[in-house]
Amino acid sequence: MLRTIKPKNARSKRALQAREPKEVEDPRTCIFVRGTHTGEVLNGVMKDLMALKRPHAVSFSKKNTVRPFEDASSLEFWANKNDASMFVVGQTTKKRPDGLTFARMFDGRILDMLELGVTAYTPMSAFKTQKATPGNRPLVHFASELFDANPRLAQVKSMLLDLFGGGEASDALCLSGIEHVVSVTLGPAPHTPSTTTTIPGQPEPLPTVHLRVFTVQLLASGIRTPRVELVPHGPSLDFAIRRHTDADPEMLKHAMKRPKLAKKDVESGLGKKRKNFEVDEMGDLRGKIHMGKQDLGKLQTRKMKGLRPALDEMDVDEDGEEGPIAKRRKDDA
């Protein structure tokens, strides 16, 4: 546990404030950690994934004795220290070659983890095409009917979506700025004799995960919507799904909480319906005032001596409109 720091100057105060929880969160910062042994493949994979994740990526280029599934305390420490909430840990062993462990954090603690084994890898540099601008937000494409059916595959989708497309900080997108797409496709479900009757205790076989990155070309089509063509961008990865830990339901419940009010609601009155208020297109608050019907008979015009009711008239006409004035006149006199 890191000690709590009381800021001593404005700069450190600002830095600490930037780490405080926000209603609308930025994309997760991801730390790429090398385990005790990472082969050439994993080094390349992590380098390429980091290139896609930049600028929300931190590289731990030294070897670290870290086994996330056995002891996640190091990850929690690093997460607090670097204000990061996602980890990609690369570790290759004889039993589990070329394993990438994706770990997500919530409130400085591990939320869930997933290990994917790299079975095929073509580096980004092998595709001699123009690369996407670092920091450009990719489109994300998933293709399979199994994402909703299997909780493990749902976790794969959620994890990869969080890695590439997470964070809802932007509310506008420059349409000419669409550059690349990360596509995650699952292979067909492996056919085994036990597909109909799954043996309890033995994990059911999961399909291969194909991760491809393409450059998006928007071509003229004669109509407003352009025609899309895809060019390989790299890297291209195939994964086998391995170990996992599910999220603690209580923690997940806290993590899935949404802020109550949208920004627009706040603009127009903190969620309550405010009558006769509106925010116009310029973002100005405008009010509408409803007035009672104006009685022009009571309108005060210029006072003139000649228009004053004569004293003798007033005495006669007590209940008329000029009654009050007449009374005042009397009191004065």
């Binding site: 929880p21 209603e23 954090m105 409130d107 959620s158 993590a255 899935m256």
Partner: peptide, 15 residues
Amino acid sequence: LPKPTTALPRSKPLP
């Protein structure tokens, strides 16, 4: 862009 419909876990609790 409208608000996202897919729910992803937050990285920090709500302020």
